[in-house]
Design a protein around this nucleic acid. Structure first.
Lengths: 147, 147
DNA sequence: ACCCATAGCGTGTAATTACACTTACTGGAG
DNA sequence: CTCCAGTAAGTGTAATTACACGCTATGGGT
């Protein structure tokens, strides 16, 4: 309240600052990923699915990605049609949809990672490795604090 | 290249990290701003327009907001219909659209700032004032480095 | 006076996001 | 067994974003 009077002016908006920075960065990654037919929203999903090992309830996946559950549902549909993931009803609880990456999905992920790596390299080169190490920790802290 | 081998793994994706953090924060601001009929995309536009004093070419405004020019065009349309901004053709160069905030727009901005201030306060309180001071500088650095 | 490269904008279309609401299912209380 | 509160997920709808493309206007060269 008192200690940060200057930060309560709209120029210092946390939301807008994050938003516009994310937009600037996103363009670079989308450009590289386009070459392998993955959008910048799809890549993190496949990535996370592989990391979690498969059979992940949709809600759990959504939380991991800090993504709205319904948004994830929409993003999953084209991936399923492309055969990169499968959505199966849990045998013990028919409410739960267990999502798993397929072999085709893993193959696509290999291509995707090359494209992604190019974008990440360029980005790190421009902003500096040390700067990103700092930033990454601070952003994690923000997410923890707000969710 | 060599010095940051660990940062070239998808867990450390700059784009996705910024994206998801922005999403988490955005929800808070959108909730508060809804009470005054401004979306979280509209508030920064009015804010910047007032700061720039009026008669701003659309392209210039877009650059200031780190926003795609065509996205700004779309976001401006509802604001114009609501009478909060006006778009006028430059008398000396008919290609240029000069955007200006109206009196009604400034009035709405006053309401908006109260709502925004609540969101910003809550956010700062949770993430910490010092953390944000650091973060804000680093995010600015990222934008400069990539655009 | 004419032509044309360029600048500034708008539109078609598509991807992404999320709120409000609905549907389907589970497990336990009575 | 029945009912119902709560949980998991999908859908209707709308806002946000941006790429590709097309339009109009400008200014300089010929």
């Amino acid at each position: 309240m008192d200690p940060a009077e200057d930060l309560l002016k709209p120029v210092h908006c946390v939301s807008h600052t994050l938003q516009k920075t994310a937009r600037v960065v996103a363009g670079l990654y989308a450009g590289e990923l386009r070459s392998c037919g993955l959008s910048r929203g799809q890549f993190p999903i496949l990535q996370q699915l592989e990391a979690l090992g498969g059979g992940v309830p949709l809600s759990v996946l959504a939380r991991r990605l800090y993504m709205d559950r319904t948004t994830l549902t929409r993003n999953l549909t084209p991936l399923e049609r492309a055969g990169l993931v499968v959505r199966e009803v849990d045998p013990d609880d028919a409410r739960i949809r267990r999502v798993t990456i397929t072999a085709a999905g893993r193959a696509r992920l290999v291509e995707g990672r090359e494209a992604w790596r190019r974008a990440q390299s360029q980005t790190l080169e421009r902003i500096g490795v040390d700067a990103w190490r700092l930033l990454e920790d601070e952003l994690r802290h923000v997410r923890k604090a707000l969710s």
